[in-house]
Write a protein that binds this DNA or RNA. Structure first.
Lengths: 246, 246
DNA sequence: TAATTGCTGTGTACCTTATACACAGTTAAT
DNA sequence: ATTAACTGTGTATAAGGTACACAGCAATTA
């Protein structure tokens, strides 16, 4: 029963944290030294510099100059901290309004803005891929921007949503790829994997041919160009056929 | 320096494990009770039933009836165990040869086979998304099948590779979505998130409209249909324009 | 003004997990 | 028969997340 693992989380509290809801009750006692978002920013700083694996409650506390347990006054626990880090990293959703009209350049710009964020915060990929995470206001704002760009297409809401997911999934996976190859020590892995392939070339003829033709060498052009062209072309096809039908 | 975190892993040993390479040296001593793959299968059983979070060395050892430390005779550590679990779960790559000719039905079938595996082993998504993992023989076989399907297109090797990544990324993200909504307790999250959106409807007009039109309700049709159509259409466009040019 | 109450940060303690290390038993090569 | 390599075990260590009780502080209440 996978539910047990999540049994600790209180959806209400998690969402309240993300949306910055302070219950209006009177606040007695000492003023808090920080806000939850400040805690999250410290976490982001650590994760940016050393990866999500280096993020521990102790590290964050240390960076803020308080005890580990003090953090629990600000966030319910580590998972919620990460959720807040995600939403905080996603502040500044793109403003697509000033772009030339047309869904295509806007969705294109959205995708590239998206990638910029993923590149600036590589841990975002891991943090958002693992589990269903609560959506915070900034994440919703990103979604809103993309959906808004697609509204003039005349596609129905579900298709608009599907299209966004499609573009997002492309960006996520390409970024993952890029980050992987950028990582140090990758040379060694590549070398060994290539050797392994060479040893079993007969079992994997298509891969072997692709390797020989340089499909896995670092790309000259931006892989996002190819993917976006495909995906946007595909969406365009839908838009046009939907337009004809109506 | 993110490298430090990985400093323990020995690429050579990891790959040797995945590819089942036994050094031909004479084996003295007691026969091992299991093979690494058997250990991995136990891990898969646990992860299938209770998720990747429930996977611990102790659980696996318990299931096999040995001490925790005995596992370290079979796998170098937990990360390598997970890599082996991944490759083991990916045995039985699809046989696309018996399908009607044409890259499109084959790539379509490949994508659906892919999704079947991800659905059967939900932890695969998390396990393969987190970090660069070593490619094992079965993973390569899957890649080979997809690349082989694309060879008749005449696209160059890099484009073939890009196309595969594109389709894979689609499948991965859609499956993620599906798994998310299938999860228990999700109702509560959805309810609260919806309430949150309603409270801030003015900030997120496009999302609000989409929600009102039911874009987030459980889909009647298969979301993969839409995505694959888009993506394959996009690829087809490339194939045709490449064909004309040559 | 004084009492109260709810809040803050601290210190300590507990539990889970991965894994290093030394040991005892086993078996194939010598 | 001896030995060397290998197996599984037991013990120990080190992180890391988090529960809990306490001491002090400040705004509400009397």
């Amino acid at each position: 029963m996978p539910a047990s693992r999540e049994s600790k989380r209180d959806p209400g509290a998690s969402l309240a944290l993300l949306w910055g809801e302070a219950d209006g009750r009177p606040r007695r006692g000492p003023k808090p030294k920080f806000t939850p978002v400040q805690v999250a920013r410290s976490g982001i700083e650590i994760a940016d510099a050393e990866g999500l694996a280096a993020l521990s409650m102790q590290r964050v506390a240390e960076m803020l100059g308080v005890t580990t347990m003090a953090l629990y006054r600000y966030v319910p626990g580590k998972p919620d901290l990460i959720d807040l880090m995600v939403d905080t990293a996603l502040d500044s959703p793109p403003d697509l309004g000033h772009l030339p009209d047309g869904w295509r350049p806007r969705l294109d710009a959205w995708a590239r803005a998206c990638r910029r964020v993923y590149r600036a915060h590589p841990w975002l990929l891991a943090a958002t891929g693992l589990r269903r995470q609560a959506m915070g206001p900034h994440q919703v704002a990103w979604l809103d921007a993309a959906l808004a760009a697609l509204e003039p297409t005349g596609l129905d809401a579900r298709r608009r949503h599907d299209a966004v997911i499609l573009v997002l999934s492309l960006v996520r996976n390409l970024t993952q790829q890029t980050l992987d190859s950028d990582e140090r020590g990758d040379r060694e892995w590549d070398r060994l994997t290539t050797r392994q392939l060479a040893l079993h070339a007969d079992r994997f003829p298509a891969v072997t041919r692709a390797v020989a033709e340089g499909a896995f060498a670092p790309a000259g052009d931006d892989p996002l160009d190819f993917g976006l062209t495909c995906v946007l072309d595909g969406i365009q096809g839908l838009v046009e056929s939907a337009g004809q039908r109506s």
